[in-house]
Amino acid sequence: MEFNFKDFIPGFLKGGPEQPRELDKTKAKLKELSETIQPETIGEVWGKLRPSFDADMEELGITDAAKKEELWQQVRHEVESNQLENSEELRNVDAFINNSQNLPELKKIIESTDPKAKADQWLKSLSEKIPGWGLISGGIAGYLISWAEDSKKDGKDSFLGSQLRKLASWLGGEKEKAPEPNEAETLVKNLSEKFKAKGVVLESASLASGMQDMLKNDKAEALGKLADDALAPAGKLTKLLEALNIHRTEKPLELRITDLRFQKNFSIDQINALVSTIKGEKDAKFQMKKEGLLGARELLDAALLMKDGKMEEALAAFKKPEKAV
Protein backbone atom coordinates (compact mmCIF):
# COMPACT_ATOMS: atom_id res chain seq x y z
CA MET A 1 0.00 0.00 0.00
CA GLU A 2 1.23 3.43 -0.83
CA PHE A 3 1.55 4.86 2.61
CA ASN A 4 4.25 6.60 4.48
CA PHE A 5 3.03 8.11 7.67
CA LYS A 6 6.38 9.57 8.65
CA ASP A 7 6.57 11.40 5.34
CA PHE A 8 3.98 13.85 6.48
CA ILE A 9 3.74 13.58 10.22
CA PRO A 10 6.90 15.61 10.94
CA GLY A 11 5.12 18.62 9.47
CA PHE A 12 2.42 18.23 12.07
CA LEU A 13 5.04 17.96 14.74
CA LYS A 14 7.17 20.85 13.70
CA GLY A 15 5.03 23.89 14.44
CA GLY A 16 6.06 27.43 13.60
CA PRO A 17 7.75 30.01 15.78
CA GLU A 18 4.46 31.91 15.89
CA GLN A 19 2.94 28.97 17.71
CA PRO A 20 4.95 28.50 20.85
CA ARG A 21 2.17 26.56 22.53
CA GLU A 22 2.44 23.02 21.23
CA LEU A 23 1.05 19.66 22.13
CA ASP A 24 4.58 18.48 22.70
CA LYS A 25 3.98 15.09 24.21
CA THR A 26 1.21 14.28 21.74
CA LYS A 27 3.55 15.20 18.94
CA ALA A 28 6.48 13.27 20.33
CA LYS A 29 4.35 10.19 20.65
CA LEU A 30 2.98 10.67 17.15
CA LYS A 31 6.51 10.85 15.86
CA GLU A 32 7.43 7.65 17.63
CA LEU A 33 4.30 5.88 16.38
CA SER A 34 4.85 7.13 12.87
CA GLU A 35 8.07 5.20 12.72
CA THR A 36 6.57 1.92 13.83
CA ILE A 37 2.90 1.74 12.96
CA GLN A 38 1.62 -0.11 9.91
CA PRO A 39 -1.03 1.39 7.67
CA GLU A 40 -3.55 -1.38 8.34
CA THR A 41 -3.33 -0.72 12.02
CA ILE A 42 -3.00 3.00 11.89
CA GLY A 43 -6.27 3.24 13.81
CA GLU A 44 -4.29 2.04 16.80
CA VAL A 45 -2.57 5.41 16.75
CA TRP A 46 -5.52 6.81 18.62
CA GLY A 47 -5.23 4.36 21.50
CA LYS A 48 -1.49 4.72 21.80
CA LEU A 49 -1.63 8.46 21.43
CA ARG A 50 -4.16 9.09 24.12
CA PRO A 51 -1.78 8.93 27.14
CA SER A 52 0.48 11.53 25.54
CA PHE A 53 -2.50 13.72 24.75
CA ASP A 54 -3.58 13.43 28.38
CA ALA A 55 -0.07 14.45 29.48
CA ASP A 56 -0.27 17.50 27.26
CA MET A 57 -3.63 18.41 28.68
CA GLU A 58 -2.19 18.15 32.14
CA GLU A 59 0.67 20.43 31.20
CA LEU A 60 -1.76 22.91 29.69
CA GLY A 61 -3.75 22.88 32.88
CA ILE A 62 -6.83 21.34 31.36
CA THR A 63 -8.27 19.06 33.96
CA ASP A 64 -11.95 19.10 33.15
CA ALA A 65 -12.75 15.60 31.84
CA ALA A 66 -15.54 16.76 29.56
CA LYS A 67 -13.36 19.46 28.06
CA LYS A 68 -10.53 17.01 27.53
CA GLU A 69 -12.83 14.54 25.85
CA GLU A 70 -14.20 17.28 23.63
CA LEU A 71 -10.71 18.29 22.53
CA TRP A 72 -9.70 14.70 21.96
CA GLN A 73 -12.75 14.10 19.80
CA GLN A 74 -11.86 17.24 17.91
CA VAL A 75 -8.36 15.95 17.26
CA ARG A 76 -9.79 12.77 15.85
CA HIS A 77 -12.64 14.36 13.95
CA GLU A 78 -10.50 17.01 12.30
CA VAL A 79 -7.85 14.57 11.27
CA GLU A 80 -10.46 12.15 9.93
CA SER A 81 -12.44 14.83 8.12
CA ASN A 82 -9.40 16.36 6.58
CA GLN A 83 -8.18 12.99 5.47
CA LEU A 84 -11.52 12.30 3.81
CA GLU A 85 -11.62 15.71 2.16
CA ASN A 86 -8.35 14.80 0.54
CA SER A 87 -9.43 11.30 -0.37
CA GLU A 88 -9.46 10.11 -3.93
CA GLU A 89 -13.07 9.00 -3.52
CA LEU A 90 -14.33 12.45 -2.63
CA ARG A 91 -12.25 14.02 -5.37
CA ASN A 92 -13.95 11.65 -7.81
CA VAL A 93 -17.37 12.78 -6.63
CA ASP A 94 -16.38 16.44 -6.90
CA ALA A 95 -14.86 16.00 -10.32
CA PHE A 96 -18.05 14.32 -11.45
CA ILE A 97 -20.38 17.09 -10.36
CA ASN A 98 -17.96 19.77 -11.50
CA ASN A 99 -18.12 18.46 -15.05
CA SER A 100 -21.11 20.16 -16.61
CA GLN A 101 -21.29 17.35 -19.17
CA ASN A 102 -22.75 15.35 -16.31
CA LEU A 103 -25.39 17.97 -15.60
CA PRO A 104 -27.55 18.03 -18.74
CA GLU A 105 -30.51 19.54 -16.91
CA LEU A 106 -28.39 22.58 -16.09
CA LYS A 107 -27.53 22.94 -19.75
CA LYS A 108 -31.20 22.67 -20.71
CA ILE A 109 -32.13 25.46 -18.32
CA ILE A 110 -29.26 27.71 -19.42
CA GLU A 111 -30.01 27.24 -23.08
CA SER A 112 -33.76 27.55 -22.74
CA THR A 113 -35.49 30.45 -24.47
CA ASP A 114 -37.07 31.32 -21.13
CA PRO A 115 -34.52 30.24 -18.52
CA LYS A 116 -36.31 31.88 -15.63
CA ALA A 117 -39.46 29.83 -16.29
CA LYS A 118 -37.38 26.73 -16.86
CA ALA A 119 -35.52 27.28 -13.59
CA ASP A 120 -38.82 27.68 -11.74
CA GLN A 121 -40.09 24.52 -13.36
CA TRP A 122 -36.94 22.69 -12.24
CA LEU A 123 -37.39 23.95 -8.71
CA LYS A 124 -40.99 22.81 -8.75
CA SER A 125 -40.02 19.30 -9.83
CA LEU A 126 -37.39 19.32 -7.09
CA SER A 127 -39.94 20.25 -4.45
CA GLU A 128 -42.23 17.51 -5.69
CA LYS A 129 -39.46 14.99 -5.15
CA ILE A 130 -38.25 16.42 -1.87
CA PRO A 131 -41.14 18.06 -0.08
CA GLY A 132 -40.17 21.38 1.41
CA TRP A 133 -37.33 22.18 -0.96
CA GLY A 134 -39.52 24.47 -3.04
CA LEU A 135 -39.87 26.69 -0.02
CA ILE A 136 -36.16 27.32 0.17
CA SER A 137 -35.44 28.50 -3.35
CA GLY A 138 -33.21 31.24 -1.92
CA GLY A 139 -31.42 28.56 0.03
CA ILE A 140 -30.86 26.47 -3.06
CA ALA A 141 -29.50 29.54 -4.83
CA GLY A 142 -27.11 29.92 -1.92
CA TYR A 143 -25.90 26.35 -2.32
CA LEU A 144 -25.40 26.94 -6.03
CA ILE A 145 -23.35 30.08 -5.37
CA SER A 146 -21.24 28.33 -2.77
CA TRP A 147 -20.67 25.55 -5.31
CA ALA A 148 -19.65 28.14 -7.91
CA GLU A 149 -17.22 29.68 -5.41
CA ASP A 150 -15.61 26.32 -4.71
CA SER A 151 -15.20 25.58 -8.41
CA LYS A 152 -13.27 28.78 -9.07
CA LYS A 153 -9.91 28.46 -10.74
CA ASP A 154 -7.23 31.03 -9.98
CA GLY A 155 -9.87 33.25 -8.42
CA LYS A 156 -12.00 33.29 -11.55
CA ASP A 157 -15.30 31.62 -12.22
CA SER A 158 -15.07 28.34 -14.07
CA PHE A 159 -17.39 27.59 -16.96
CA LEU A 160 -19.58 25.56 -14.62
CA GLY A 161 -19.39 28.29 -11.98
CA SER A 162 -20.80 30.90 -14.34
CA GLN A 163 -23.64 28.54 -15.24
CA LEU A 164 -24.41 27.84 -11.61
CA ARG A 165 -24.54 31.57 -10.90
CA LYS A 166 -26.98 32.07 -13.74
CA LEU A 167 -29.26 29.39 -12.34
CA ALA A 168 -28.91 30.93 -8.88
CA SER A 169 -29.86 34.36 -10.22
CA TRP A 170 -33.03 32.94 -11.79
CA LEU A 171 -33.89 31.38 -8.47
CA GLY A 172 -33.50 34.78 -6.86
CA GLY A 173 -30.15 34.25 -5.24
CA GLU A 174 -28.21 37.04 -6.87
CA LYS A 175 -29.76 40.25 -8.03
CA GLU A 176 -28.78 40.98 -11.61
CA LYS A 177 -25.15 40.55 -10.81
CA ALA A 178 -23.17 40.77 -13.99
CA PRO A 179 -21.67 37.36 -14.62
CA GLU A 180 -17.94 37.34 -14.06
CA PRO A 181 -16.16 37.09 -17.38
CA ASN A 182 -14.49 33.77 -17.46
CA GLU A 183 -11.51 32.54 -19.33
CA ALA A 184 -13.58 30.39 -21.67
CA GLU A 185 -15.85 33.18 -22.81
CA THR A 186 -12.98 35.62 -23.33
CA LEU A 187 -10.90 33.19 -25.29
CA VAL A 188 -13.77 31.95 -27.41
CA LYS A 189 -14.77 35.54 -28.13
CA ASN A 190 -11.24 36.35 -29.27
CA LEU A 191 -11.11 33.21 -31.33
CA SER A 192 -14.46 33.92 -32.96
CA GLU A 193 -13.29 37.43 -33.84
CA LYS A 194 -10.18 36.02 -35.44
CA PHE A 195 -12.29 33.64 -37.48
CA LYS A 196 -14.55 36.52 -38.41
CA ALA A 197 -11.58 38.57 -39.57
CA LYS A 198 -10.83 35.77 -41.98
CA GLY A 199 -14.40 35.88 -43.25
CA VAL A 200 -15.49 32.79 -41.37
CA VAL A 201 -18.57 33.21 -39.22
CA LEU A 202 -19.28 30.60 -36.61
CA GLU A 203 -23.05 30.40 -36.81
CA SER A 204 -24.86 30.12 -33.48
CA ALA A 205 -21.47 29.78 -31.85
CA SER A 206 -21.89 26.03 -32.12
CA LEU A 207 -18.19 25.44 -32.41
CA ALA A 208 -17.48 28.05 -29.79
CA SER A 209 -19.56 25.99 -27.39
CA GLY A 210 -17.36 23.01 -28.06
CA MET A 211 -14.33 25.11 -27.31
CA GLN A 212 -15.84 26.22 -24.03
CA ASP A 213 -16.24 22.60 -23.08
CA MET A 214 -12.54 22.13 -23.68
CA LEU A 215 -11.58 25.17 -21.71
CA LYS A 216 -13.41 24.25 -18.62
CA ASN A 217 -11.33 21.12 -18.52
CA ASP A 218 -8.03 22.92 -18.31
CA LYS A 219 -7.25 22.92 -21.97
CA ALA A 220 -6.75 26.66 -22.08
CA GLU A 221 -3.23 26.35 -23.34
CA ALA A 222 -4.24 24.19 -26.28
CA LEU A 223 -7.01 26.59 -27.14
CA GLY A 224 -4.76 29.60 -26.76
CA LYS A 225 -2.51 28.06 -29.37
CA LEU A 226 -5.55 27.32 -31.45
CA ALA A 227 -6.58 30.96 -31.24
CA ASP A 228 -3.19 31.98 -32.56
CA ASP A 229 -3.37 29.39 -35.28
CA ALA A 230 -6.77 30.66 -36.32
CA LEU A 231 -4.99 33.31 -38.33
CA ALA A 232 -3.13 30.68 -40.27
CA PRO A 233 -4.46 30.23 -43.82
CA ALA A 234 -5.53 26.64 -43.37
CA GLY A 235 -6.08 23.93 -40.84
CA LYS A 236 -8.27 25.85 -38.46
CA LEU A 237 -11.00 23.34 -37.87
CA THR A 238 -8.64 20.46 -38.29
CA LYS A 239 -6.72 21.80 -35.36
CA LEU A 240 -9.87 22.21 -33.38
CA LEU A 241 -10.88 18.64 -34.04
CA GLU A 242 -7.41 17.43 -33.23
CA ALA A 243 -7.45 19.37 -30.00
CA LEU A 244 -10.76 17.78 -29.13
CA ASN A 245 -9.31 14.41 -29.96
CA ILE A 246 -6.42 15.00 -27.60
CA HIS A 247 -8.78 16.22 -24.98
CA ARG A 248 -11.28 13.41 -25.08
CA THR A 249 -9.48 10.35 -26.18
CA GLU A 250 -11.65 8.30 -23.90
CA LYS A 251 -14.84 9.45 -25.57
CA PRO A 252 -16.33 7.97 -28.70
CA LEU A 253 -16.29 10.17 -31.74
CA GLU A 254 -20.06 10.53 -31.69
CA LEU A 255 -19.88 12.17 -28.31
CA ARG A 256 -17.13 14.52 -29.37
CA ILE A 257 -19.25 15.62 -32.27
CA THR A 258 -22.24 16.00 -30.02
CA ASP A 259 -20.06 18.07 -27.74
CA LEU A 260 -19.56 20.42 -30.59
CA ARG A 261 -23.27 20.91 -30.30
CA PHE A 262 -24.08 20.27 -33.84
CA GLN A 263 -27.29 18.79 -32.52
CA LYS A 264 -28.40 22.25 -31.64
CA ASN A 265 -28.81 23.09 -35.26
CA PHE A 266 -28.71 19.74 -37.00
CA SER A 267 -31.05 16.80 -37.10
CA ILE A 268 -29.98 13.42 -35.79
CA ASP A 269 -29.68 12.14 -39.34
CA GLN A 270 -27.44 15.03 -40.20
CA ILE A 271 -25.21 14.40 -37.19
CA ASN A 272 -25.02 10.74 -38.04
CA ALA A 273 -24.06 11.63 -41.58
CA LEU A 274 -21.34 13.93 -40.32
CA VAL A 275 -20.06 11.34 -37.88
CA SER A 276 -19.99 8.59 -40.45
CA THR A 277 -18.30 10.89 -42.90
CA ILE A 278 -15.65 11.77 -40.40
CA LYS A 279 -15.28 8.13 -39.50
CA GLY A 280 -14.79 7.27 -43.11
CA GLU A 281 -12.20 9.96 -43.24
CA LYS A 282 -10.33 8.56 -40.28
CA ASP A 283 -8.37 5.92 -42.12
CA ALA A 284 -7.44 8.30 -44.85
CA LYS A 285 -6.54 11.00 -42.37
CA PHE A 286 -2.82 10.45 -42.22
CA GLN A 287 -2.49 10.13 -45.92
CA MET A 288 -4.52 13.27 -46.47
CA LYS A 289 -2.57 15.10 -43.87
CA LYS A 290 0.65 14.05 -45.49
CA GLU A 291 -0.60 15.29 -48.78
CA GLY A 292 -1.76 18.51 -47.20
CA LEU A 293 -5.26 17.80 -48.36
CA LEU A 294 -7.13 17.62 -45.09
CA GLY A 295 -9.35 20.61 -45.72
CA ALA A 296 -10.43 22.56 -42.70
CA ARG A 297 -12.24 25.02 -44.84
CA GLU A 298 -14.13 22.24 -46.57
CA LEU A 299 -15.21 20.87 -43.23
CA LEU A 300 -16.55 24.24 -42.20
CA ASP A 301 -18.28 24.69 -45.52
CA ALA A 302 -19.83 21.29 -45.10
CA ALA A 303 -21.00 22.11 -41.62
CA LEU A 304 -22.61 25.33 -42.78
CA LEU A 305 -24.25 23.60 -45.73
CA MET A 306 -25.56 20.95 -43.40
CA LYS A 307 -27.05 23.59 -41.22
CA ASP A 308 -28.92 24.87 -44.25
CA GLY A 309 -30.16 21.35 -44.90
CA LYS A 310 -28.09 20.96 -48.05
CA MET A 311 -26.87 17.53 -47.14
CA GLU A 312 -25.75 16.34 -50.53
CA GLU A 313 -23.75 19.44 -51.20
CA ALA A 314 -22.37 19.32 -47.67
CA LEU A 315 -21.13 15.79 -48.01
CA ALA A 316 -19.73 16.55 -51.42
CA ALA A 317 -17.83 19.52 -50.00
CA PHE A 318 -16.60 17.50 -47.10
CA LYS A 319 -15.40 14.65 -49.23
CA LYS A 320 -13.52 16.89 -51.58
CA PRO A 321 -10.09 16.27 -50.06
CA GLU A 322 -10.68 12.55 -50.02
CA LYS A 323 -11.52 12.61 -53.70
CA ALA A 324 -8.34 14.49 -54.32
CA VAL A 325 -6.41 11.68 -52.67
Partner: peptide, 15 residues
Protein backbone atom coordinates in the same frame (compact mmCIF):
# COMPACT_ATOMS: atom_id res chain seq x y z
CA UNK B 1 -5.93 5.65 6.84
CA UNK B 2 -4.83 5.69 3.23
CA UNK B 3 -2.33 8.34 2.28
CA UNK B 4 -0.70 8.38 -1.10
CA UNK B 5 2.82 9.80 -1.27
CA UNK B 6 1.58 12.43 -3.72
CA UNK B 7 -0.77 13.67 -1.03
CA UNK B 8 1.89 14.01 1.63
CA UNK B 9 2.16 17.75 1.04
CA UNK B 10 -1.57 18.22 1.40
CA UNK B 11 -1.56 16.12 4.51
CA UNK B 12 1.18 18.24 6.01
CA UNK B 13 -1.04 21.27 5.73
CA UNK B 14 -3.99 19.25 6.90
CA UNK B 15 -2.36 18.20 10.11
Amino acid sequence: FIVHPAEAGTMLRTY
